[in-house]
């Protein structure tokens, strides 16, 4: 079996999905099911105090018994906020230590602050977290995060929620070639072909949220993404043909082609 292994645990799906931006929890659940994802990200936020006490809870729709929940640090701009958020997440999820770290640097682009990300990763690893880390597509940074002890490195394809697709496949290729831990494209996928391209490059998986949630039909897009990731993975494993630039090669035999018919006289009477 061709499985994804993260921090010693085996997953059959290479598609990881977020749970944000859906219309309601029913749609979230339907999309997650259609995606086939086993690892799903969640955010940690203040609960409403004194308001609707019987508000539905996300974890009732997506129970931790069924999915591997990956709490994130979305919205954190400092090391301290990121570490505190994940400590709360670990308490919330009964000691679960697999987390997604992201430390942002700019509210407009949501670009990761890699300096702060490195610092936060170091603290979290010392605290026995298993850190899947969102980062830029800088190969040196990716390698440093791996050497520090992160369990997966997750470079962006393009900006979070932008749907701009894979802007720098060359950098991703360098990161993949250098890495000994799983590399997952996180952020920027817009449609199925983007996910396939990521997998064809040799990524171990793809993490996405908005590409599914913001589609006109999220559940159908979730299904498309599942197939796209599988197709890209199979194409990668199969090994694509070499490109032959400006050099055509017929697929059908060049021998045994029927002869050109003899020309008949124009009036046809012989």
């Amino acid at each position: 079996m061709d499985n994804l292994v993260i921090a010693g645990k085996t997953y059959s799906s290479r598609l990881l999905v977020g749970t944000g931006k859906y219309k309601d929890f029913n749609e979230t659940r339907a999309a997650v099911e259609a995606s086939g994802a086993e690892i799903i990200t969640v955010a940690i936020r203040r609960t409403n105090i004194g308001q609707n006490a019987n508000e539905p809870n996300l974890l009732d729709s997506l129970p931790p018994s069924k999915y591997t929940l990956l709490p994130n640090t979305a919205g954190c701009y400092t090391v301290d906020d990121a570490v505190r958020t994940l400590c709360l997440a670990r308490e919330l999820l009964d000691g679960h230590s697999l987390v997604k770290l992201e430390v942002l640097g700019d509210p407009r682009t949501l670009y990761p602050n890699v300096v702060e990300t490195l610092k936060a990763a170091e603290i979290l690893i010392k605290e026995d977290f298993q850190v899947m880390v969102y980062t830029s597509d800088d190969p040196i940074m990716a390698k440093q995060l791996e050497e520090m002890g992160c369990v997966a490195v997750m470079p962006l394809a393009s900006l979070i929620g932008s749907g701009m697709g894979i802007l720098n496949p060359w950098n991703l290729q360098i990161i993949i070639d250098n890495a000994k831990i799983p590399v997952l494209v996180d952020a920027g996928v817009g449609t199925a072909s983007d996910a396939t391209i990521a997998m064809e490059l040799g990524c171990d998986g793809v993490l996405m949220n908005t590409a599914i949630a913001a589609a006109q039909n999220p559940v159908l897009m979730a299904s498309a993404m599942r197939k796209a990731v599988e197709a890209g993975r199979e194409a990668y494993l199969a090994g694509r043909m070499a490109k032959k630039l400006y050099s055509a090669s017929p697929s059908s035999p060049t021998e045994g082609i029927i002869a050109q018919a003899a020309k008949k006289p124009a009036n046809g009477n012989s």
Binding site: I44, R45, L58
Partner: peptide
């Protein structure tokens, strides 16, 4: 005040004047 209060210690942890509490849940996110 920036420190986790483990569930097992909820009943013994007394709160004092000026304490700052964060009460969080899991929500949808990417």
């Amino acid at each position: 005040n920036g420190e986790i209060v483990p569930r097992s210690r909820f009943s013994e942890k007394m709160l004092a004047h000026g304490d700052q509490l964060e009460v969080v849940v899991a929500v949808g996110g990417g």
